[in-house]
Simulated scan of single mutants.
Amino acid sequence: MGIVVLLVYVDDIVITSSNSALLGQLKTHLSESFHMKDLGSLLYFLGLEVHHSPSGISLNQHKYVSDLVATAGLQGATSIDTPMELSVKLRKEEGDLLADPSLYRKLVGSLVYLTMTRPNISFDVQQVSQFLQTPRHLHLATVHRIICYVQGTSTHGLSFPTGNSTRLATYNDADWAGCVDTHHSITGWCVFLGDALISWKSKKQDRVSKSSTEFEYRAMSFAWSEIIWLRGLLMELDFS
Results as ranks from 00 to 15, higher is better:
L86S: 11
V125P: 00
Y44T: 06
L68R: 07
D38M: 02
Q130H: 09
N120F: 06
V108A: 06
F123C: 00
A77W: 10
G24M: 08
Q126L: 04
V180H: 09
L42R: 07
G73N: 08
G163D: 02
S240G: 13
E49D: 10
I147F: 00
K201N: 08
G47E: 04
M235N: 15
M1S: 13
S165T: 12
M235T: 11
P161F: 14
I227H: 09
Y44N: 05
M116P: 11
I3W: 06
L90F: 06
S41T: 01
G95R: 01
T28G: 07
D96Q: 13
P161M: 13
Y64N: 13
L138E: 13
V112Q: 15
E216T: 00
F34A: 06
I198K: 09
R105N: 11
G194F: 13
T134L: 10
S165I: 02
T142A: 14
I147C: 02
G178M: 01
S202P: 02
S87L: 13
R207G: 07
R136C: 07
R231Y: 09
V143C: 03
H139G: 04
T117I: 05
D100C: 10
T153K: 15
T182G: 05
K37G: 11
S66K: 15
K210Y: 12
A169W: 14
L230E: 13
H62V: 01
D206V: 01
L43G: 10
V108Q: 06
N19I: 08
T134N: 15
L42P: 03
F160E: 07
G56H: 11
E216P: 03
G2V: 01
A99S: 12
A141T: 13
E85G: 08
F131P: 00
W189Q: 14
D12M: 05
S202H: 01
I227G: 08
T162E: 12
S185A: 06
L26S: 05
L97S: 12
Y149A: 01
S31W: 01
S18F: 03
W189F: 15
P119T: 10
I198W: 14
E216G: 02
H29Q: 09
I13W: 10
L48F: 15
S209H: 04
T115L: 05
